[in-house]
Design a protein around this nucleic acid. Structure first.
Length: 814
RNA sequence: GCGAAAGUGGCGGAACUGGCAGACGCGCUGGAUUUAGGAUCCAGUGGGAUUACCCAUGGGGGUUCAAGUCCCCCCUUUCGCACCA
């Protein structure tokens, strides 16, 4: 009987050590094979260590990398740590340990866990963004931005997280108005901050999306985030005042329908617009607005409110007086913070006009109907023919849109304009654990960038890093006091550190030569290895890291530093793993701790089970018992080789069916792996193993069986690397299975000679018949009609139609 | 409110361009082997009906010889955007 026991713990340790000792995964820079840069999003070392989400990112990604290696690519698969930033710092604060120490410890632990995955990482290429050797070059990126006029300081209402005690970029505030990291409600504060001018790249960030193979939903998110809209800026003089309202509109064609204007309550111009008699009401309204939180205020369900300022603007095309209101439905930070209102053709303006009894004036008439202000229930926002629009009546509104802008431009009252929702990237943080901003403030020379040769601006270690609402570095005189590089006089350093997303916006350039110390990256290696061929990571970075990285890449391309302007050619987002149908969280108590399962089942089983649970794109639901299925499968493979690989047999015949099954498996596992359909690839391998167990029930042809099993090991190896290496050596090999070539399948072997097809009568399957593949329609028809089962149904009936889809199905209509 | 994706056995999920729905696995049932097993092997497993029949892919219509797949309406879930002028 069978007492062969699959002991993953022992096997996996053995082969990890062997791989390391023999340098199996050392990246060969000189290889002539085509390169394949397989990248996963690196992790930040917080106290939580590697969780299942990391495993789900890294395990399957490594399977893909191993597959590519067997397919003949020179695969580059590095790993590192995004070590600066809030998670690491908050962990340090909570435990009262210096972040430099806790980060180091966490990295050490996570390295161990990452090694337990058994991935092909070449650790010679490891990155730690909190290492001065790395952040020196993050500061260099800042200086490049500065040099190119893309880094600037300005005072602006910015997002402030009261818990993290720092400002945040727009991208780092959730839709609920909460801090992306800690979930605290974010408030607005007026502060002087550093920004990167990502808005300069808005159009190119849009255009580039058409050239990359990314999930469509991610592209859509980026497009929406950038929010390009075409329209016009139009000036409305204010009656009896030396003032002008400049509005942005995407519907200049509705200019004759303007019946009022609205200014955001917090806009400075409101003071000047408000008349004596309205001042009390306006003051109260502004106060009320400021008390309300941003989210409630910006909700579409929020009922319209507003107050008349007492002033009137003049419509520049017809001289009509139009009242100026303030209302919180106008956002101060978008466009100019003021709008022209056309209730007849804009739903929001319509609701406002209805509420305050403002006139509704129709200027566009739909194709086959007419509108009347009294009967309208909502605004008409489509195109149509112009009416009530002076000399332009009768013109198509779409055509008029362009005509009227030309008219504005000729008269000097407006111009064509493209507006974006995207704002500049706020990169300064009032926190300790980050790369210091390499800038010196000199009373004489102003803002002076730190000369490149003086980099890095080192983060001092002896600092009280507990957040106090201002930069911890500001209270470190040794750090702050510095001589101005220009005039040599006394000056101060900038006390802020950079957003961690700056660190991760260029790390993929550093990987190919992470130890280079005279430049941020090795140009020759970057030319060779970049852009990234496959990037795999979570979808939550759609409008953060993935947008920033593209921006920085484009900037460096413009600066002549690199030869490509899109960093990630192919992108894939893995799904999320749930448990009992719910997201894993500590509060639900349904967290899967990978270490526990790896200990009992081994990393091969753990990795493979994650891949088997569901489609990689959608994730799956974790089942503590389900993992047994994969464990049994691997143990079954183990026993198959140990007990039958060298077994004697006397059969001289090859099993045609098993051989065919092998080729079928090679083909499908190849196709499925290529499209990240790991769950079906594993199912195909299970079918193969089931078939081999059928085969060994009979007499074995030892030579043939060995060949079959050898090839199967190679296709199994990306999925269960340790087990496959073990068995590969068991068969007598001395070299690694990962130095083999992916087997080729033979389409001729896959072609069935005799096939079974279903015969339907009126769409219901009533029989199956065996036919020769590719036989002509007539002979199929006679075979089918002679079938007894078919005869029962067709006897004495009139066959109206006989449909035969080649090699697939027959349907007889009677 | 708008946009996108999805809804298939007791469960996780297959089904690539319309062509035998439920691959593969979990669980369950029965059997074999075993001192015993939560190990292994074999068989069965969508629902109903006493035998080649009927019903089944969220619900309702439709197109087609043929629909999980295409079209229309509705319901539910998840995600994204939320007054962006």
């Amino acid at each position: 009987m069978d007492n062969t026991v699959y002991n993953p713990t022992e096997i996996e340790k053995k082969w990890r050590d062997w791989w390391e000792q023999n340098g199996i995964y050392k990246f060969d820079k000189k290889s002539k094979k085509p390169k394949f840069y397989n990248l996963v999003m690196f992790s930040y070392p917080s106290g939580n260590k590697l969780h299942i989400g990391h495993w789900y990112n890294y395990g399957p990604a490594d399977t893909f990398a191993r597959y590519k290696r067997l397919k003949g690519f020179n695969v580059f698969e590095p790993m590192g740590f995004d070590a600066f930033g809030l998670p690491a710092e908050n962990y340090a604060i909570k435990h009262g340990i210096h972040p430099a120490i806790s980060t180091k410890k966490n990295i050490e632990y996570m390295e161990k866990q990452l090694k337990a995955i058994g991935a092909m990482y070449d650790w010679d290429y490891e990155i730690d963004t909190s290492d001065p050797k790395y952040y020196k070059w993050t500061q260099w990126v800042f200086l490049k931005m500065y040099e190119r006029g893309l880094a600037y300081q300005k005072e602006a209402p910015v997002n402030w997280c009261p818990h993290c005690q720092t400002v945040l970029a727009n991208e780092q505030v959730t839709a609920e108005g909460e801090c992306e990291r800690c979930g605290t409600k974010v408030i607005k504060r007026n502060l002087k901050q550093w920004f990167f001018k990502i808005t300069d790249y808005a159009d190119r960030l849009l255009e580039g999306l058409d050239r990359i193979n990314w999930p469509e939903k991610t592209k859509i998110m980026q497009r929406n985030w950038i929010g390009r809209s075409e329209g016009a800026m139009i000036e409305f003089p204010v009656k009896d005042k030396d003032l002008k309202l400049t509005v942005f509109t995407t519907r200049p064609d509705t200019i004759f329908g303007v019946t009022y204007c609205v200014v955001a309550p917090e806009h400075p111009i409101v003071k000047e617009l408000t008349t004596e008699s309205q001042s009390e009401e306006v003051r109260k309204y502004i106060e009320k607005t400021l008390r309300e939180n941003e989210i409630e205020r910006q909700s579409t369900e929020h009922e319209k409110t507003g107050v008349f300022t007492g002033s009137y603007a003049v419509n520049p095309v017809n001289g009509e007086d139009i009242p100026i209101w303030i209302s919180d439905y106008v956002i101060a930070s978008y466009g100019t913070g003021m709008v022209m209102a056309v209730p007849a053709h804009d739903t929001r303006d319509f609701a406002f006009a209805k509420k305050f009894n403002l006139p509704i004036k129709i200027v566009i008439k739909p194709e086959n109907s007419s509108l009347s202000p009294e009967e309208m229930e909502d605004a008409y926002t489509e195109s149509g023919k112009m009416v009530n629009s002076g000399d332009f009546n009768g013109m198509e509104s779409e055509e008029f849109k362009n005509k009227i802008i030309e008219y504005f431009e000729n008269k000097g009252i407006g111009k064509r304009h493209i507006n974006y929702r995207l704002r500049d990237w706020l990169i300064s943080r009032q926190r300790y654990w980050g790369a210091p901003i390499p800038v010196i403030h000199c009373p004489k020379c102003g803002t002076v960038p730190v000369p490149v040769e003086d980099l890095p601006v080192r983060l001092p270690e002896n600092v009280d890093f507990n957040p106090k609402g201002k930069s911890p570095l500001a209270s470190v005189p040794e750090f702050m006091n510095v001589k101005c590089p220009v005039c040599g006089g006394d000056a101060k350093r900038d006390p802020d550190t950079m957003d961690t997303f700056v660190c991760s916006s260029w790390y993929y350039l550093r990987y190919p030569d992470p130890h280079i110390d005279n430049y941020p990256f090795n140009k020759e290696m970057v030319d060779k290895l970049l852009p990234v061929d496959q990037y795999i990571g979570g979808a939550e970075h759609a409008t953060m890291h993935l947008l920033y990285a593209r921006f920085v890449t484009k900037m460096l391309y413009d600066a002549g530093e690199i030869r490509f302007d899109e960093p990630f050619i192919n992108l894939f987002h893995q799904g999320t793993i749930t448990r009992n149908g719910a997201k894993m969280s500590k509060s639900r108590g349904n967290v899967v701790n990978p270490d526990d399962f790896v200990e009992t089942y081994g990393s091969d089983t753990f990795r493979m089970y994650m891949m088997f649970m569901g489609s990689y794109e959608e994730g799956g639901d974790w089942d503590d018992k389900g993992i047994n299925g994969i464990h049994r499968f691997l143990a079954r493979i183990y026993r198959l080789y140990k007990n039958y690989y060298f077994k004697d047999g006397t059969s001289r015949e090859k099993s045609l069916s098993l051989n065919k099954r092998l080729h079928y498996t090679i083909k499908n596992v190849e196709n499925d792996t290529e499209r990240f359909s790991f769950n079906t690839a594993i199912a195909r391998m299970m079918e193969f193993v089931n078939d081999t167990y059928d085969y060994i029930k009979g007499d074995i042809n030892p030579q043939f069986f060995k060949e079959i099993l050898d090839q199967f090991l190679i296709i199994l190896s990306p999925y269960a690397p340790h087990l496959s290496e073990e068995l590969w050596h068991f068969t007598g090999r001395e070299s690694s299975v990962f130095d083999e070539k992916w087997p080729k399948y033979d389409e001729n072997i896959l072609k069935e000679r005799e096939i079974t097809i279903a015969v339907q009568i009126n769409g219901k399957v009533r029989a199956t018949v065996k036919i020769e593949a590719d036989t002509n329609d007539e002979s199929v028809k006679s075979t089918v009609l002679q079938n007894n089962r078919v005869k029962q149904y067709t006897e004495g009936k009139n066959i109206k139609k006989f449909i035969y889809i080649k090699n697939k199905i027959v349907n007889i209509v009677i």
